[in-house]
């Protein structure tokens, strides 16, 4: 069984991102970058499937600037077998990413595509679903448990009402939620070994994908600073303030 995992290069979750002074976007100069945490969970899940003997090959793919090779390399150190880097300097929209991944799916014919449910930079939560639509494959988003059984998979999804269990036919798209697993650390010996694994480079144009943006970013600015809160004396005062000042209850 072949697994394709997509990883995105994002600002490290510990970094406080600031808007550029000219408001043209977030200031990512000199900022520490990392694999999107949800993508890392997807990689971990693939590695666990391989350790269980279910998966035979894990291919990791990333799309973005040449620097995204670092994140592919990290995924290789975590246990992926080979990498694909689709390089472009265009700021990609979700649909462009999904189309690139669709092209990779056509070339590689994976049985499962594992993605993070969303990336912590745009927080769009688009790509998995769009890839599902483009490929016509089954999709199971927000997975908190994944069990493979022959040519189908049982997935427990985290939905607003609680947990939902669904069964899907393979090939399928699965997006990882936070509780799917706890990713391991890349160990030093594996970091060294990852250097010998291959990363194939390609471009959206080579894959026949038009990545030109369809939307325009007008302005990026930091959220307004919140005013300090107040302490209420008792419940009566709380109810009064909610009713008459905040007007959130009546």
């Amino acid at each position: 069984m072949k697994i394709l995992v997509a990883v995105k290069r994002v600002a490290d979750y510990n970094v406080k991102v600031r808007a550029k002074s000219d408001n043209t976007g977030p200031d990512l100069a000199n900022v520490k970058m990392a694999i999107n945490p949800f993508c890392e969970i997807a990689v971990e899940e693939a590695v666990r499937l391989k350790e269980k003997g279910i998966a035979t090959e894990i291919i990791v793919v990333s799309i973005g600037a040449q620097a995204a090779q670092e994140q592919v390399r990290t995924a290789l150190a975590l246990g992926a077998d080979r990498g694909i880097l689709i390089t472009t300097d265009t700021d990609l929209e979700s649909l462009a990413v999904a189309k690139c991944l669709k092209a990779v799916c056509d070339n590689e014919s994976p049985d499962i595509v594992l993605l993070g449910k969303q990336a912590i930079d745009g927080d769009n939560n688009h790509t998995g679903q769009m890839l599902g639509a483009l490929t016509g494959w089954a999709q199971a988003t927000f997975a908190s448990e994944l069990t493979i059984d022959g040519d189908s998979a049982t997935v427990i999804r985290e939905v607003d009402a609680g947990l939902q269990t669904i069964q899907i036919k393979l090939p399928a798209i699965v997006t990882a939620d936070l509780r799917l697993n706890e990713p391991r650390y890349a160990s030093l010996p594996n970091i060294m070994k990852a250097k010998k694994k291959t990363i194939d480079s390609t471009t959206p144009a080579d894959l026949g994908v038009d990545v030109a943006p369809r939307t325009t970013l007008l302005k990026a600015e930091p959220p307004a600073e919140r005013k300090a809160g107040i302490k209420v004396e008792d419940v009566a005062q709380l109810v009064d303030k909610l009713k008459n000042e905040a007007k959130v209850i009546s």
């Binding site: 390399r73 990290t74 650390y185 890349a186 970091i191 990852a194």
Partner: peptide, 13 residues
């Protein structure tokens, strides 16, 4: 890149 990778792994640890 190897140093960065080791740094990331160690930081998480």
């Amino acid at each position: 890149e190897d140093h960065e990778a080791w740094r990331r792994a160690l930081r998480r640890f």
